[in-house]
Design a protein around this nucleic acid. Structure first.
Lengths: 238, 238
DNA sequence: TCGGGCAATTGGTCTGACAACCTGTTGACT
DNA sequence: AGTCAACAGGTTGTCAGACCAATTGCCCGA
């Protein structure tokens, strides 16, 4: 029998890594809150009993993670990551072949679908107003692909906010970002944008009608269309 | 009208930041692929015309982002994480109040449910063997809460791998990590662990039977149970 | 009172050194 | 000839101390 036996490599951790975890612990435990200023590098080095380069490595990592902000001459502060903005990081790594694109949209269909359903379930009147505005904004930017993409992102974000689930929102945002790398091609075609707008209208209608399942279906169809046009554009450009 | 007029602070970027972007560019452009070995720190320092500490700060950041793996004495490699491991970063930011716990499990139910369904749809025989092994491992660790949590995580990871969707896997992992912060309390109760194991057995049975919808339901129920026990434990400890 | 300039503080970078670790090779022993 | 231990070279990990650059705030002079 093939033992699972997950023998871990026993890696003795970096001192810098330990310090990262330690500081992260402070943030988690609430001992460090958003906007708080950290001690200076020299003080941190002294308190942790390590050298300044080591401290700097730890801070560099935390900065990359978006947990702290470093100001030359000014000090180091805990970022105000009220809810969203993390997760920017993974915008890279687009070695994505077509297989992966399928998987990406499999995930998007699920998550965006749920978001649409939740939004339909608990939409507030003013939310609906916003969505309508965004639709007209999209109609007005059919000629400008870059602008359309921007408004499109706002549209999906708005819907995600209506779903009132920060976790789904977060996941949806990152998947959207990843998808956007591919859509540059497709979105240059006017007919594609027009089709997208039509999809959005159907979604809004379902949300307005407070029909969760209809909304989910509409969103799933939309994702399907986006995937299809993305693939066609990719094939053509080959 | 309030002009946006985004006057940027003209921040001259860190040299380390520049190097991070540069290396990231290589990865994006395909000049550096998964598993590739980077030049040594000294060589990098020389080529970029900077000192080694600066290079180390850049590498530390990339390591935190999960883009590279650094082995003491061994070298630096581009992570192979075909698609997955980014996004780890946002494991923190757990300001989670009880409202948020509900939302967290709303998201988990959706994503883990889909994973279970996909796994049931395309399970391979050896995968089923692994799952069985994990079940017995869990049965054996009912007395040790910490160990049980570890095996539990492996169980969910395994299922996620079977779903063959790196994006869902990634999302599920981070949600699981977030959830774990709360489960420390609940998982100290033996009866809770036993209940969890029973849930797992039902899930595996559904996967083995190749019944996607049954698996989804079983997983959703499991999530529901986890949420319930987590809440009860939290209430008791108040 | 206001304004400019100086000085302290803080982050940014460099140099050079040594320790800990991994790997392949060499050499001795069986 | 085959095995295995010790060694050498390269690599990351950490440290110390120094100096540069940006920010801040105090202090003094107008």
């Amino acid at each position: 029998m093939a033992e699972t036996l997950a023998i871990e490599p026993i890696q003795r951790e970096n001192v810098a890594t330990i310090i990262v975890d330690r500081l992260l612990g402070f943030v988690k435990a609430g001992k460090l809150n958003s906007g708080d200023r950290l001690p200076s590098e020299r003080q941190l080095a002294e308190r942790f009993g390590v050298s300044r380069p080591t401290i700097r490595e730890a801070l560099s990592a935390l900065s990359a993670l978006g947990v702290v902000e470093i100001n030359h001459g000014g000090g180091i502060f805990v970022s105000r990551l009220d809810a969203t903005d993390l997760l920017q990081p993974l915008t890279f790594f687009l070695t994505l072949e077509s297989v992966t694109v399928d998987k990406l949209y499999e995930a998007r269909r699920l998550i965006e679908g749920e978001i649409a359903a939740l939004a339909a379930h608990q939409a507030m009147p003013e939310d609906l107003g916003h969505l309508e505005e965004l639709l007209t904004a999209q109609a007005g930017s059919l000629g400008d692909a870059a602008e359309y993409r921007t408004v499109d992102t706002i549209f999906h974000d708005r819907l995600a906010m209506m779903a009132t689930n920060p976790f789904l929102m977060r996941a949806a945002q990152s998947l959207n970002m990843l998808g956007q790398e591919f859509r540059h091609l497709a979105s240059e075609t006017p007919s594609v944008l027009a089709g997208s707008l039509e999809d959005h209208k159907v979604i809004v209608a379902a949300v307005r009608a407070a029909e969760p399942e209809l909304a989910r279906k509409a969103m799933a169809d939309h994702m399907e269309n986006v995937l299809r046009t993305t693939r066609e554009a990719a094939r053509k450009s080959k």
